[in-house]
Simulated assay, not measured.
Amino acid sequence: MSSVRVRAAGAVLWRTGPGGIEVAVAHRPRYDDWSLPKGKLDSGETLPAAAVREIAEETGFRAHLGRHLRTVRYSVAAGPKSVDYYSAAAVSGAFEPNEEVDELRWLAPAEAAGLLSYDSDRSVLEDFGALPASLTTLLLVRHAKAGKRDEWRGDDDLRPLSPSGIRQAAALRALLPLFGPDRVVAAPRLRCEQTVRGVADDLGVPVEHEDLMAEEHYWDDRDAGLARLLALVSVGGTPVVCSQGGVIPDLVTRLATRDGVRLPVDEGEKVPSKKGSVWVLSFRAAPGNGGPQLVAADYLPTALPTPATSQV
Protein backbone atom coordinates (compact mmCIF):
# COMPACT_ATOMS: atom_id res chain seq x y z
CA MET A 1 0.00 0.00 0.00
CA SER A 2 1.43 3.37 -1.04
CA SER A 3 1.59 6.33 1.26
CA VAL A 4 1.18 9.99 0.42
CA ARG A 5 4.05 12.42 0.66
CA VAL A 6 2.73 15.85 1.61
CA ARG A 7 4.64 18.82 0.19
CA ALA A 8 4.88 22.08 2.10
CA ALA A 9 7.03 25.21 2.10
CA GLY A 10 8.03 27.88 4.57
CA ALA A 11 10.63 30.50 5.32
CA VAL A 12 12.74 32.37 7.77
CA LEU A 13 11.16 35.78 7.25
CA TRP A 14 13.63 38.51 8.16
CA ARG A 15 14.04 42.26 8.26
CA THR A 16 16.57 44.77 9.57
CA GLY A 17 15.41 46.25 12.88
CA PRO A 18 16.92 48.89 15.18
CA GLY A 19 19.24 46.32 16.73
CA GLY A 20 20.08 44.35 13.58
CA ILE A 21 18.53 41.34 11.89
CA GLU A 22 15.11 40.25 13.20
CA VAL A 23 13.19 37.11 12.25
CA ALA A 24 9.46 36.44 12.49
CA VAL A 25 8.11 33.74 14.84
CA ALA A 26 4.41 32.90 14.64
CA HIS A 27 2.11 31.58 17.38
CA ARG A 28 -0.48 29.14 16.05
CA PRO A 29 -3.46 28.86 18.42
CA ARG A 30 -4.57 25.58 16.86
CA TYR A 31 -1.39 23.87 18.10
CA ASP A 32 -0.41 26.37 20.81
CA ASP A 33 3.12 26.44 19.40
CA TRP A 34 5.67 28.93 18.07
CA SER A 35 6.93 28.19 14.59
CA LEU A 36 8.32 29.57 11.36
CA PRO A 37 5.73 30.49 8.70
CA LYS A 38 4.91 27.45 6.59
CA GLY A 39 2.06 25.53 5.00
CA LYS A 40 1.02 22.91 2.45
CA LEU A 41 1.11 23.51 -1.27
CA ASP A 42 -2.12 24.33 -3.04
CA SER A 43 -2.95 22.43 -6.21
CA GLY A 44 -0.91 23.73 -9.15
CA GLU A 45 1.56 25.61 -6.94
CA THR A 46 5.35 25.60 -6.84
CA LEU A 47 7.34 25.36 -3.62
CA PRO A 48 8.60 28.98 -3.84
CA ALA A 49 5.07 30.23 -4.57
CA ALA A 50 3.71 28.33 -1.57
CA ALA A 51 6.39 29.83 0.68
CA VAL A 52 5.55 33.39 -0.40
CA ARG A 53 1.81 32.78 -0.13
CA GLU A 54 2.07 31.24 3.33
CA ILE A 55 4.19 34.18 4.52
CA ALA A 56 1.51 36.59 3.31
CA GLU A 57 -1.38 34.59 4.79
CA GLU A 58 0.21 33.98 8.19
CA THR A 59 2.15 37.22 8.72
CA GLY A 60 0.62 39.84 6.40
CA PHE A 61 4.01 40.57 4.83
CA ARG A 62 5.04 40.52 1.18
CA ALA A 63 8.45 38.89 0.82
CA HIS A 64 11.17 38.21 -1.71
CA LEU A 65 12.83 34.81 -1.52
CA GLY A 66 16.54 34.21 -1.30
CA ARG A 67 18.48 30.99 -0.89
CA HIS A 68 17.00 27.60 -0.05
CA LEU A 69 17.85 26.69 3.55
CA ARG A 70 16.93 23.02 3.97
CA THR A 71 14.23 20.40 3.54
CA VAL A 72 12.71 19.06 6.76
CA ARG A 73 11.03 15.64 6.67
CA TYR A 74 8.71 14.07 9.21
CA SER A 75 5.56 11.96 9.37
CA VAL A 76 1.95 13.15 9.67
CA ALA A 77 -1.34 11.27 9.60
CA ALA A 78 -1.41 11.37 5.79
CA GLY A 79 2.11 9.91 5.55
CA PRO A 80 5.64 11.30 5.09
CA LYS A 81 5.78 15.09 4.80
CA SER A 82 8.51 17.40 3.54
CA VAL A 83 8.83 21.14 4.09
CA ASP A 84 11.22 23.24 2.01
CA TYR A 85 12.42 26.38 3.77
CA TYR A 86 13.83 29.54 2.21
CA SER A 87 15.35 32.76 3.41
CA ALA A 88 12.80 35.52 2.75
CA ALA A 89 13.25 39.27 3.10
CA ALA A 90 10.18 41.19 4.25
CA VAL A 91 9.38 43.90 1.71
CA SER A 92 6.17 45.47 2.96
CA GLY A 93 3.07 44.72 5.01
CA ALA A 94 1.84 44.50 8.59
CA PHE A 95 0.63 41.70 10.81
CA GLU A 96 -3.00 41.26 11.77
CA PRO A 97 -4.21 38.30 13.85
CA ASN A 98 -5.90 35.65 11.73
CA GLU A 99 -7.28 32.11 11.95
CA GLU A 100 -3.84 30.52 11.64
CA VAL A 101 -1.67 32.95 13.62
CA ASP A 102 -2.81 35.07 16.55
CA GLU A 103 0.56 36.58 17.48
CA LEU A 104 3.73 37.43 15.57
CA ARG A 105 7.01 38.38 17.20
CA TRP A 106 10.06 39.92 15.53
CA LEU A 107 13.11 38.75 17.44
CA ALA A 108 16.87 38.54 17.15
CA PRO A 109 17.77 35.06 15.85
CA ALA A 110 19.10 33.89 19.24
CA GLU A 111 15.88 34.96 20.98
CA ALA A 112 13.80 33.35 18.25
CA ALA A 113 15.64 30.06 18.69
CA GLY A 114 14.71 30.08 22.38
CA LEU A 115 11.03 30.65 21.61
CA LEU A 116 10.55 28.15 18.76
CA SER A 117 8.76 24.97 19.80
CA TYR A 118 10.52 22.51 17.48
CA ASP A 119 14.11 21.41 17.02
CA SER A 120 13.57 21.25 13.25
CA ASP A 121 12.70 24.96 13.16
CA ARG A 122 15.78 25.74 15.22
CA SER A 123 17.88 23.79 12.70
CA VAL A 124 16.41 25.85 9.86
CA LEU A 125 17.16 29.04 11.77
CA GLU A 126 20.72 27.83 12.35
CA ASP A 127 21.15 27.35 8.59
CA PHE A 128 19.81 30.86 8.05
CA GLY A 129 22.37 32.28 10.47
CA ALA A 130 25.29 30.50 8.82
CA LEU A 131 25.46 33.26 6.18
CA PRO A 132 24.61 36.97 6.15
CA ALA A 133 20.89 37.61 5.75
CA SER A 134 21.40 40.22 3.05
CA LEU A 135 22.88 38.58 -0.05
CA THR A 136 22.73 39.42 -3.75
CA THR A 137 20.76 36.92 -5.82
CA LEU A 138 21.33 36.26 -9.51
CA LEU A 139 18.79 34.07 -11.32
CA LEU A 140 20.58 32.15 -14.09
CA VAL A 141 17.95 30.74 -16.48
CA ARG A 142 18.33 28.20 -19.30
CA HIS A 143 16.12 29.18 -22.21
CA ALA A 144 12.89 27.25 -22.61
CA LYS A 145 12.29 24.57 -25.25
CA ALA A 146 12.63 25.71 -28.85
CA GLY A 147 12.31 22.53 -30.89
CA LYS A 148 15.20 20.68 -32.50
CA ARG A 149 18.02 22.65 -34.06
CA ASP A 150 18.34 20.30 -37.06
CA GLU A 151 14.64 20.75 -37.87
CA TRP A 152 14.87 24.56 -38.05
CA ARG A 153 15.81 25.77 -41.53
CA GLY A 154 16.27 29.46 -40.75
CA ASP A 155 18.90 31.44 -38.86
CA ASP A 156 19.43 29.58 -35.58
CA ASP A 157 19.56 32.90 -33.71
CA LEU A 158 15.90 33.33 -34.70
CA ARG A 159 14.68 29.88 -33.65
CA PRO A 160 11.58 30.59 -31.52
CA LEU A 161 10.12 28.81 -28.53
CA SER A 162 7.99 25.75 -29.18
CA PRO A 163 4.50 25.40 -27.69
CA SER A 164 5.96 23.55 -24.70
CA GLY A 165 8.62 26.26 -24.41
CA ILE A 166 5.94 28.93 -24.34
CA ARG A 167 4.35 27.10 -21.41
CA GLN A 168 7.72 26.98 -19.65
CA ALA A 169 8.21 30.72 -20.21
CA ALA A 170 4.78 31.41 -18.73
CA ALA A 171 5.75 29.36 -15.66
CA LEU A 172 9.00 31.33 -15.32
CA ARG A 173 6.98 34.54 -15.56
CA ALA A 174 5.18 33.44 -12.38
CA LEU A 175 8.20 31.96 -10.60
CA LEU A 176 11.00 34.49 -11.06
CA PRO A 177 9.17 37.49 -9.52
CA LEU A 178 9.03 35.61 -6.20
CA PHE A 179 12.75 36.40 -5.87
CA GLY A 180 12.34 40.13 -6.51
CA PRO A 181 14.14 40.58 -9.85
CA ASP A 182 14.74 44.10 -11.15
CA ARG A 183 16.82 43.62 -14.30
CA VAL A 184 16.59 41.17 -17.22
CA VAL A 185 19.55 40.14 -19.39
CA ALA A 186 19.60 37.55 -22.18
CA ALA A 187 21.94 36.07 -24.74
CA PRO A 188 21.11 37.52 -28.19
CA ARG A 189 18.99 34.57 -29.25
CA LEU A 190 15.26 34.89 -29.91
CA ARG A 191 14.56 31.84 -27.74
CA CYS A 192 16.49 33.37 -24.81
CA GLU A 193 14.71 36.70 -25.12
CA GLN A 194 11.29 35.06 -25.44
CA THR A 195 11.95 33.01 -22.30
CA VAL A 196 12.27 36.08 -20.07
CA ARG A 197 10.39 38.74 -22.02
CA GLY A 198 7.25 38.30 -19.92
CA VAL A 199 9.22 38.94 -16.73
CA ALA A 200 10.73 42.08 -18.26
CA ASP A 201 7.33 43.30 -19.44
CA ASP A 202 5.87 42.86 -15.97
CA LEU A 203 8.78 44.79 -14.45
CA GLY A 204 8.59 47.50 -17.11
CA VAL A 205 12.24 47.06 -18.09
CA PRO A 206 13.92 46.08 -21.39
CA VAL A 207 15.56 42.75 -22.10
CA GLU A 208 19.25 43.66 -22.31
CA HIS A 209 21.34 41.59 -24.73
CA GLU A 210 24.67 40.20 -23.56
CA ASP A 211 26.89 38.54 -26.18
CA LEU A 212 29.08 36.83 -23.57
CA MET A 213 26.12 34.74 -22.41
CA ALA A 214 25.84 33.17 -25.90
CA GLU A 215 27.69 29.89 -26.39
CA GLU A 216 30.13 30.90 -29.13
CA HIS A 217 31.15 34.18 -27.47
CA TYR A 218 31.41 32.63 -24.01
CA TRP A 219 33.74 29.86 -25.21
CA ASP A 220 35.87 32.37 -27.11
CA ASP A 221 36.75 33.92 -23.74
CA ARG A 222 35.44 32.06 -20.68
CA ASP A 223 37.20 34.42 -18.28
CA ALA A 224 35.46 37.40 -19.85
CA GLY A 225 32.12 35.60 -19.56
CA LEU A 226 32.67 34.89 -15.86
CA ALA A 227 33.82 38.46 -15.26
CA ARG A 228 30.71 39.79 -16.99
CA LEU A 229 28.42 37.71 -14.80
CA LEU A 230 30.20 38.94 -11.67
CA ALA A 231 29.91 42.51 -12.94
CA LEU A 232 26.14 42.07 -13.15
CA VAL A 233 26.16 40.88 -9.53
CA SER A 234 28.33 43.83 -8.44
CA VAL A 235 25.71 46.32 -9.59
CA GLY A 236 23.34 44.96 -6.93
CA GLY A 237 19.67 44.23 -7.18
CA THR A 238 18.47 40.86 -8.44
CA PRO A 239 19.31 40.30 -12.10
CA VAL A 240 17.75 37.60 -14.28
CA VAL A 241 20.23 36.24 -16.84
CA CYS A 242 18.99 33.89 -19.58
CA SER A 243 21.68 31.83 -21.29
CA GLN A 244 22.24 28.51 -23.05
CA GLY A 245 23.01 24.93 -22.09
CA GLY A 246 26.55 25.22 -23.41
CA VAL A 247 27.30 28.06 -20.99
CA ILE A 248 25.47 27.53 -17.71
CA PRO A 249 27.06 24.29 -16.42
CA ASP A 250 30.57 25.66 -16.99
CA LEU A 251 29.76 29.03 -15.41
CA VAL A 252 28.20 27.45 -12.32
CA THR A 253 31.01 24.91 -11.96
CA ARG A 254 33.73 27.54 -12.21
CA LEU A 255 32.01 29.81 -9.69
CA ALA A 256 31.50 26.97 -7.22
CA THR A 257 35.08 25.73 -7.60
CA ARG A 258 36.52 29.21 -7.23
CA ASP A 259 34.56 29.99 -4.07
CA GLY A 260 34.38 26.55 -2.46
CA VAL A 261 30.61 26.08 -2.73
CA ARG A 262 29.24 22.54 -2.77
CA LEU A 263 26.65 22.18 -5.51
CA PRO A 264 23.43 20.17 -5.01
CA VAL A 265 24.55 17.41 -7.39
CA ASP A 266 26.00 13.97 -6.77
CA GLU A 267 29.77 13.60 -7.03
CA GLY A 268 30.85 12.95 -10.60
CA GLU A 269 27.56 14.11 -12.11
CA LYS A 270 27.44 16.92 -14.64
CA VAL A 271 26.00 20.20 -13.39
CA PRO A 272 22.39 20.16 -14.65
CA SER A 273 20.84 22.79 -16.86
CA LYS A 274 17.49 21.61 -18.19
CA LYS A 275 15.59 23.86 -20.55
CA GLY A 276 13.45 26.24 -18.53
CA SER A 277 15.46 25.59 -15.34
CA VAL A 278 16.90 28.15 -12.92
CA TRP A 279 20.06 28.37 -10.84
CA VAL A 280 19.49 30.63 -7.83
CA LEU A 281 22.99 31.96 -7.14
CA SER A 282 23.61 33.85 -3.89
CA PHE A 283 26.60 36.16 -3.48
CA ARG A 284 28.16 38.30 -0.77
CA ALA A 285 30.77 41.00 -1.12
CA ALA A 286 34.25 39.56 -0.61
CA PRO A 287 36.64 41.24 1.85
CA GLY A 288 38.67 44.05 0.32
CA ASN A 289 38.18 44.46 -3.42
CA GLY A 290 37.76 40.79 -4.24
CA GLY A 291 34.37 41.28 -5.86
CA PRO A 292 31.26 39.13 -5.32
CA GLN A 293 31.75 35.70 -3.74
CA LEU A 294 29.35 32.83 -4.40
CA VAL A 295 28.09 31.43 -1.09
CA ALA A 296 25.09 29.30 -2.13
CA ALA A 297 23.71 27.74 -5.31
CA ASP A 298 20.24 26.20 -5.57
CA TYR A 299 18.87 24.44 -8.65
CA LEU A 300 15.21 24.60 -9.70
CA PRO A 301 14.87 22.01 -12.51
CA THR A 302 11.51 23.37 -13.57
CA ALA A 303 9.28 26.37 -13.00
CA LEU A 304 6.20 24.22 -13.46
CA PRO A 305 4.05 23.38 -10.42
CA THR A 306 5.11 20.76 -7.89
CA PRO A 307 2.45 18.17 -6.93
CA ALA A 308 1.07 18.98 -3.48
CA THR A 309 1.02 15.23 -2.77
CA SER A 310 2.75 12.36 -4.50
CA GLN A 311 2.58 8.60 -4.22
CA VAL A 312 5.69 6.97 -2.77
Rank of each mutant, 00 (worst) to 15 (best):
V4W: 08
R15Q: 12
G19M: 08
V25A: 10
R28E: 06
D32M: 04
K40S: 07
K40V: 02
L41S: 00
G44H: 01
T46K: 00
P48T: 07
A49V: 00
V52H: 10
R53N: 03
H68K: 14
L69K: 01
L69C: 08
R70H: 05
T71N: 05
R73A: 15
Y74N: 13
A78W: 01
S82K: 13
D84S: 14
V91D: 10
E99T: 08
P109G: 09
P109D: 04
A113I: 05
A113V: 06
L115S: 14
R122T: 05
R122S: 10
D127P: 01
T137H: 10
L139K: 07
A144G: 08
E151Y: 06
D157R: 15
S162Y: 03
G165S: 06
R167W: 02
Q168K: 08
A170I: 09
A171K: 10
L172I: 09
R173L: 08
G180E: 12
D182E: 15
E193C: 14
T195F: 11
G198A: 14
D201L: 08
D201G: 12
G204P: 09
G204F: 12
P206R: 15
H209C: 15
E216P: 15
L226H: 06
A227E: 13
R228T: 10
G236Y: 08
P239C: 09
V241Y: 04
V241A: 03
C242F: 09
S243M: 13
G246E: 11
L251N: 00
L251D: 00
T253G: 03
L255P: 05
R258V: 08
R262S: 11
P272W: 03
S273P: 02
G276A: 14
S277H: 07
W279S: 10
V280N: 07
L281W: 03
G291A: 06
L300V: 05
T302H: 03
A303Q: 03
Q311E: 10
